[in-house]
Design a binder for these strands. Structure first.
Lengths: 160, 160
DNA sequence: GATCCAATACTCGGATAGTAACTGTCCGAGTGGGAAAGG
DNA sequence: CCTTTCCCACTCGGACAGTTACTATCCGAGTATTGGATC
């Protein structure tokens, strides 16, 4: 039950894209975060497939947010990278063994699956409450200096 | 982000142990659920390490719940099998790259880690709300017949 | 000087190896029960 | 018939392979830039 490490990188990328004025290449994001460029590209592709970011090809291309950061929730990013399937997959143990329940009595999920689903929904609801814009404000409040502004400056200044 | 399959088996075992009058061997539980006996033993060992069940050795030994089922929450079982660590592990990306925050400014978790921690706590809180006794009542309500009673009868009648 | 065109350098995208975690399995250590022998 | 002793069958517990999913990587497809040639 460990969340994929790519989620963290994807969230950082989305926050950084908030401070960008134009498309940012994946290699630039990787350099800024000090992570593997090729692996980060994989996560950004996932974000692209989920229509959270748009890829711009060509010489001065890169990734841009498709929506205002207020309209992108943390849940959107997590589900884009991890997938939308529930954390708990019921294997229908109740239909196995000598005292198996007949399949026609198992139309509804069992009590265990229901309980896990409730918890899963609570987790997702908490992630839906926070937007990327919120994250940007929060990291700004963590330090006295304007971190996001610095990032924006670095993105335009750092040339290959 | 997939929950280990052993959690489902462990929860079923705990519910079944509610209906037992004496120690139940792991092999019996596996036979009842139609799963691999040796693998189920692994999960039961985890429950034993967490002091949720007690192992009784010897000829007519097995596993017994250490507490009344009202005092065992689903979260207890999940944490026993999956571990207590949070689903999100922050790798401190902010401390890497050219614009790295200095370590002395990173005493508190970053905004992303805090957000994920809130969601993690919401998930655990939902699991803490349901006890094994609740699960027993729920599965009883799912079907007209007294499933738990049948299980109890089978446990005492089925001889190797 | 403006326009058109082609070469180019840079971008993303999916297909490809390596590694860690989960799944499934095995055999040894330990213990209570039961049979047998003795009083 | 009761007690003691010993053996044994059955239990759990940790150590051992197989498989899946995650991590990390590579090279090919495509496009805006950019420089030059032309009008």
């Amino acid at each position: 039950m460990k969340l994929s490490g790519g989620v963290e990188a994807a969230l950082h990328c989305c926050v950084v894209l908030t401070a960008a004025t134009g498309p940012v290449p994946a290699a630039r994001l990787a350099q800024l975060h000090g992570v593997s460029a090729t692996y980060l590209a994989k996560q950004l592709q996932a974000l692209s497939r989920a229509d959270l970011v748009q890829s711009v090809q060509g010489k001065s291309g890169g990734y841009v947010l498709t929506r205002p950061p207020e309209d992108i929730t943390v849940l959107d990013v997590v589900e884009a990278v991890e997938g939308t399937q529930s954390t708990f997959v019921c294997t229908e143990i109740r239909q196995r063994g000598p005292l198996a329940s007949p399949p026609e009595a198992c139309t509804a999920p069992c009590a265990i699956a229901r309980t896990m689903a409730v918890a899963d929904r609570a987790w997702r609801a908490a992630l839906r409450e926070v937007s990327i814009a919120d994250l940007g404000r929060l990291v700004g409040g963590d330090y006295d200096t304007d971190v996001l502004g610095k990032v924006g400056d670095w993105l335009v200044s750092a040339e290959p």
